[in-house]
């Protein structure tokens, strides 16, 4: 059934648009105009996560409505792929590479130190909302192993002893 023919479509559409940003809404519209619009679902979810930091229920429902795919399919895709987060992330996203090269160079000890210092496990966020800790598959910079990526910056050859200083430098006020 074409949702545009249901009598409350205007309301549904407005609510969906309100849950997203105008850029994402027009991106979805552009996808709708191409062949196989539903094939762009993952691309749309990437944009949502990039903007909101995670995929909230309201955003996923909105995507389902505007892209006209079943909500079950959106959540199916969102939960299948490890890259998508369903919970808000901390201000600093700490990805400890647990790829093979990093593992043989001691990434497990680096990870243990992060867990210890932050008091959280992989997949969790500190209660103050500052740090999220994640394990990453290879970041593609194995030559610099072990590596840690914090937000978009890659830190090469990290040792467990550097961890406390690293965390401190992140939250320290930027030098004027």
């Amino acid at each position: 059934m074409n949702p545009a023919t249901t009598d409350n479509w205007a309301q549904v559409e407005a609510a969906a648009q309100a849950a997203l940003t105008p850029e994402i809404v027009s991106f979805i519209a552009a996808c709708r105009a191409k062949p196989h619009p539903e094939s762009h679902l993952i691309a749309v979810l990437h944009r949502v996560q990039e903007h909101f930091g995670y995929l909230g229920q309201a955003q996923m429902d909105a995507v389902a409505q505007l892209l006209r795919v079943p909500a079950a399919r959106v959540s199916g895709v969102a939960t299948f792929y490890h890259y998508f987060r369903l919970q808000p992330r901390g201000r600093f996203m700490i990805n400890v590479c647990m790829g093979t090269a990093c593992y043989v160079k001691g990434a497990d000890r680096v990870a243990a130190r992060f867990r210890e210092e932050l008091g959280i496990d992989f997949g969790q966020t500190t209660t103050d909302g500052q740090f999220s800790l994640h394990d990453a598959a290879c970041l593609g910079t194995c030559g610099l192993a072990p590596v840690v990526m914090i937000n978009d910056k890659v830190y090469p050859r990290v040792t467990p002893d550097q961890v406390p200083g690293l965390l401190e430098s992140l939250t320290a006020p930027a030098p004027a």
């Binding site: 691309a43 990437h46 399919r73 890259y83």
Partner: peptide
């Protein structure tokens, strides 16, 4: 360009195709 989303199994041909189609990559 089509982006993956962090699933190793999507390197497998049929899973990759499902992923490009916007499905779970099985």
């Amino acid at each position: 360009i089509r982006l993956g989303a962090g699933a190793f199994v999507c390197g497998e041909e049929t899973a990759l195709i499902h992923s490009i189609e916007g499905e779970r990559g099985q």
